[in-house]
Amino acid sequence: MAVKMDPIHQFELKPLVSFGHIGNQEIAFTQSALYMFAAVGIIALITIVATAQRSVVPGRMQSVAEVFYEFIGSTLRQSAGHGSERFMPLIFSLFMFVLVLNMFGMIPYAFAVTSHIIVTFALALLVITTVIVYGFMAHGTKFLKVFVPSGVPGWLMPMIVAIEIVSFVSRPISLAVRLFANVLAGHIALKIFAGFVPALLAAGAWGAISPLPLALSVAVTALEFLVAGLQAYVFATLASIYLSDALHPGH
């Protein structure tokens, strides 16, 4: 068993350019930041450059951009209702960013940025901050009706309000944890199953069953592609459901 198996190693941050230290913490431009810049570059390429011509009959790249745009537009309309158009730039950017980063993570030897909870939590905080700021801006103190569901008997009210407040706090956590856990668990599972193949081959006669984990890792790869797309979609959908609270509180 000379084969080294370290499924966590792939998530290590590697500083590319160091800017010095704050306390004991190194401040550096890591490969994670590089991937994020690359993702923004690709999104800009798809959405800005490809649609620059604005042809009535879209070319290949333009129709890709239009499919994504229409898809997110319909998702937002259906989950946040009227008046939600103003959040289209936010939701579309979030969806594309998460989708492209997830897909980058599926390239062999590439780094999965969304497997770090700090990244997904920052995105979730962005959504919740928008909900709170816009909710108070548009509705003032009426926004607090979010915590008071209608049609609840009076004696149950304090309990339900307390639960609603904790539930509101749990939203960014669930947004962040869902995306991060899916990507992290998928990549670890992939690494472990793939690691079984050389381990079995190195173990003499056991090598006969090594095609099993190989087939399994192929299947897990397919599942991971599905999860990568699905989680970006779920992130965008939930973000727009939360934004609908800011648009129409007191439901």
Partner: peptide
Amino acid sequence: LGLAMRLSTEFIAGVLAGGIL
């Protein structure tokens, strides 16, 4: 599958939020 993932994280997030608060 997406719904199952959503349900489990929704529950965990509730407990976590309560704990953090």
